[in-house]
Design a protein around this nucleic acid. Structure first.
Lengths: 142, 142
DNA sequence: CATATCTGTAACGATGTTAGTTACATTTGC
DNA sequence: GCAAATGTAACTAACATCGTTACAGATATG
């Protein structure tokens, strides 16, 4: 269960909200589509709200809706909102500093990590929620 | 401990081998630099050997060395050799197929996954082991 | 203002992955 | 034959993610 599905869930959730523009959608309803517990959804919505992607309302007739138009939300925003881990982890234990390689390898890997993260962000910024929703509606993978 | 450090370790290990071109390096020696158990290193070397990046020899005076020149090995090869997981996982539980979004979202996410993986591979293929080793020697992050 | 309905969040448990460790069979040079 | 290595299986420890329960707080509505 270790791999992180937050991004997948976020895209799913946002697609649900895009399907009901300007209506409050309840966490129970979203949870039913994602097939999980409403609390899991609310936790995720909290992160998306902090990133100003959605707006939630408490109380009766409450729920959540998009804070912007689907074409104003791109997937890079979503990716940074859910703060997924890096693509690859650094060493769990500190390398040996007495070794010329061990001493410097972490800086190099850290640089690579950032480089890749930038690449991912660039790629994701090419997709808006509107694009995703269109794909979902078509049932297409193009 | 969930995040995958195999790629980091692989780059470290290959840098060690690049530092001792044409010599057999023992797993104990590499383990000392990575600060882990030799068995962990041998497991990793097994994967790198299968990808034809290194060659191991059993027995006395055995060890491992690079199978090619450092400038013939690029990091995309390493990335695919250690078969890291995807950047983000799909839903752990199957979405609800009765929902229009739930029915189609997985195909879209799967498409996105592949798109990102391609981007990462492209970026990594821009670095050879020789590049990495040069950075390590300089202690620089550029 | 009482109530029903919703979100927000804390706390805990189940599950699964990763890496570390031990142990041992196998290979190979001397 | 012996010493020195790799290859690999099996087990354990640590940890992250997700699911679940429980409850406090907010808010429409009669």
């Amino acid at each position: 269960m270790a791999a992180n599905s937050q991004f997948s869930m976020a895209v799913h959730v946002l697609s649900m909200l895009a399907a009901s523009r300007d209506e409050n959608v309840k966490s129970d309803c979203i949870a039913a589509s994602v097939n999980t517990n409403p609390v899991v959804i609310r936790r995720l919505l909290g992160q998306l709200a902090q990133a100003n992607l959605v707006i939630s309302q408490s109380g009766a007739h409450g729920g959540t809706r998009l804070a912007k138009c689907p074409n104003e939300i791109n997937l890079a925003d979503v990716y940074s909102a859910v703060a997924c881990g890096e693509v690859f982890a650094l060493h769990p234990r500190e390398p040996n500093k007495d070794c010329p390689v061990g001493r410097n390898i972490e800086a190099v890997l850290c640089h690579l990590q950032k480089r890749i993260d930038r690449t991912i962000t660039e790629t994701l910024s090419g997709y808006t929620l509107a694009d995703v929703f269109e794909m979902v509606e078509k049932g297409a993978t193009a």
